[in-house]
Structures are given as structure tokens and as C-alpha cells.
Nucleic acid binder design. Sequence first.
DNA 1: TATTAACTTGAAGTCAGCTCCAAGTTAATA
DNA 2: TATTAACTTGGAGCTGACTTCAAGTTAATA
Lengths: 129, 129
Amino acid sequence: MMISEVCERFDLTADTLRYYERIGLIPKVNRTEGGMRDYTEYDCGWIDFIKCMRNAGVQIEALTEYVKLFGEGDKTHEERKQILVRERDRIAEQIDELQSTLTRLNGKIEKYDTVFRDAEDELKLPTKK
Amino acid sequence: MMISEVCERFDLTADTLRYYERIGLIPKVNRTEGGMRDYTEYDCGWIDFIKCMRNAGVQIEALTEYVKLFGEGDKTHEERKQILVRERDRIAEQIDELQSTLTRLNGKIEKYDTVFRDAEDELKLPTKK
DNA sequence: TATTAACTTGAAGTCAGCTCCAAGTTAATA
DNA sequence: TATTAACTTGGAGCTGACTTCAAGTTAATA
């Protein structure tokens, strides 16, 4: 699969895909005889995973570390798992924070609604001044 | 209240606080005769709100716009509310995405646990090779 | 076969959001 | 009063994460 197809599939630019590979965010992709990248489904699995993690705010450094360890084989099993656990916990925490921010924002929006209704009431029932 | 006290209270550097004020992320803070910032509780309310929003990933641009409109008075009521609604929706969406990423990560971590248990079983019950 | 589109590399450029610095001023402490 | 700590400004520098560029190569189409 050519880079252009992968771009379309994951809505990433070719530059971003090459950048990801260059910095080790995804394992090296095999090439054709001509030297062009030839993506497999396996590569796409990585891209999907990395894109999902990046979208959740996981830093590139944590992910390159994970990919590096993955390349070192079974002996890094535990270390890899620790990275996932750490990031999982971070995301869980972030959800909690976002939840309370959401509540706060909803309260603020409600106040805006109330003030607006009051303002409308004033229009309907003009006070003497 | 001096800038150092505010820094401590919100765990922000003085540089960040001055930067926030310079770009209009919080309204202008009053000064002492000597020209030093003299924060009030009102200022702190803004800082708390802005810090919370930034922490939730709300972009500086949306917040400076909000502060600007606030300074323009009641006639911007509706426009300000729209900003809050838009960001609220964005945050709600982000929570959903994070939730599904969390589920995905948990599944992956579980697989790591399973493989690890299998590996342990192998140690206990060595297969002939 | 010739043109054109898609690809290659390494390096430089961009953007958001701070963060640090120099040079000077104000306020607090010995 | 003298020193020192905290503050002021404008501007330069930094970091993470891309994004663009130049100069060339490969593959697909007329």
C-alpha cells in the first residue's frame, strides 16, 4: 500500500507519516525495490494505535519508548505494560478533570441563560424609573 | 495581593501571569503607585477560570475573545455564551473520545496480563522441547 | 518515449504557548 | 541608609509537534 492510500485512510499527511516513522513513533516500514514505502496491514495497525494515543494527548516520547521496547522483544513485556498503565491512568485522570470542568461550564452557561431571561422579562414588564 | 502570592496560589509562574495579562487572557490588573501589579479577588476569579479552561485544552484564542467581549459589556452577552457553549460541546466530545481510548487501552493491558500469566504458566509447567 | 504525478531525503521553517533575559525600578529588611 | 529581594518592560529563546522546501528519483499515464 502506497503512502497516499494510508494518508487517506487515516487522514494524516504524507509528511506526518514519514515524520512519525523517522522519529520512531511507528516501526520502520518496508520499501519497494525503488525505495518507496510499502505499508502493510500490520503497519496500519500501528498507525491506528498511535493516532488514537496521540489524539488522547499521549506524548510522542512515551510512544517512541513503547515502540522501541516493542522492537527489543519479549524481555520488555513488563516495561511496555507499565507505559500503557501509566498512560491509562493519566487518561482516566484527565476524564475526571474534564468532567468537573464540564459541570462548571454548564453552571456558567445556565447563569447566562438566567440573566438573559431576566433581561427579557424586563422588556416585557418595564419598571418605572 | 502581589504577583508572588498569586503565583503560589495558582501554581503559575510570574512570567506566565504577566504573559496572560499581556495577551488579554485575563483583564488588566490594577497597579500600585509604584507600578506593581496589585491583584484582587476578582482578578483571582478570572485566573482560576482561565486556568481551568486552559487545563481542559481550551485554546488561548477562544479565551482572549471571551475576555475581550466581556470588556465590551452587556451587548456581547449572547456572543460570550456561544463561546462557552462551543467549548462545552468540544469538551463533552473529548470526554467521549477519551472514554473509548480508555476502554481500548484497558483491553490492551488485559492482553499483556494474559500473556504474562501464560508465560508464568510456562515457567511452572515446562513444555518439552 | 515523454511528461507528469507521486515519491524520496535532510534540513529549515512554523506555530502555540510559554520561559528566560537584560537592564532598570520599587519595596522590604539589617 | 545600604543591601537585597521582588518587581517592571520589551524582546529573544525554547519545546513539542509538525510542516514546508529543495533537489532529486521512481512510477504511472498519454
